[in-house]
């Protein structure tokens, strides 16, 4: 997929690009308002990652411009402005999602993947990973021909893992993804383990390989073996 990252903090955009390009995605960057405007006027992207505070202009204006020229690009706002109004404004203006800084790269990746999926396959929302087939519309999972019954949390976890395939995902990223960042779970990572254990067991029982690898202290990695 082709991504445009509009972000003025170079070390942050560097990390994001590294995280995204490894997969062979095309990832372009714009560091300020002017170059961002140029790029969105010339090229098409699957998803635009937009920071709201930019040198030379307001990110909201870029969003307005995108919508004005009727672009179909997905837009994900990444901002340190937790302001609820900003969030609502952004979503009302047609942004697809809003992520507050600081965020986990895995969360960003999952959200971008979801946006791109929604945008590119009209209606047929199927994620495929080897023998695993996920229908995001029906929220059902198949391995080969058999249907895999997962709980809501296990399902979310699997989608999250596949979006971040071959990446190490931290426990706190998983916790925040599954329970939201309103709940401070930093003292209770144990029951993330329970969900992962159950998911792993169900996958293996359904005939999949053991894709989930535990990285001691840090988190987990979902990887094709």
């Amino acid at each position: 997929m082709k991504i445009l990252l509009i972000e003025d903090e170079s070390s942050l955009s560097e990390s994001i690009i590294t995280y995204f390009t490894e997969e062979g995605n095309i990832c372009e960057t714009a560091m300020d308002y002017k170059s961002a405007m140029e790029k969105i006027n010339i090229y098409n992207y699957d998803c635009i990652l937009l920071d709201l505070t930019l040198p030379g202009g307001d990110g909201m204006e870029i969003l307005r411009a995108i919508k004005k020229i009727n672009k179909k690009d997905g837009v994900l706002i990444i901002s340190a402005r937790h302001a609820l109004d900003d969030k609502l404004d952004g979503l009302n203006l047609g942004a697809d999602d809003y992520l507050v800084k600081p965020f986990h790269l895995s969360e960003l990746k999952a959200r971008v993947t979801a946006i791109v999926r929604r945008k590119s396959y009209d209606g047929s929302n199927i994620i495929t990973f080897n023998e695993i087939q996920i229908d995001t519309q029906a929220m059902s999972v198949k391995t080969g021909d058999s249907v895999l019954i997962l709980t809501r949390k296990e399902y979310d976890l699997l989608v999250y893992f596949i979006a971040n395939n071959s990446k190490v995902i931290t426990k706190s990223a998983i916790a925040e993804h599954l329970w939201g960042d309103e709940i401070d779970l930093s003292d209770h990572f144990d029951f993330i383990y329970t969900h992962i254990k159950n998911l792993r067991k169900k996958l293996v029982e359904a005939g999949c390989k053991d894709y989930i690898k535990s990285m001691y202290g840090v988190g987990y990695k979902f990887e094709n073996i």
């Binding site: 903090e9 070390s11 942050l12 990390s15 994001i16 590294t18 995280y19 490894e22 340190a80 800084k101 600081p102 965020f103 986990h104 790269l105 895995s106 990446k167 190490v168 931290t170 990223a173 990285m215 840090v218 988190g219």
Partner: peptide
């Protein structure tokens, strides 16, 4: 956000 993203990169 930079620290977080650098950590995320580091663990890869």
């Amino acid at each position: 956000a930079v620290i977080n993203s650098k950590l995320d990169t580091l663990i890869q």
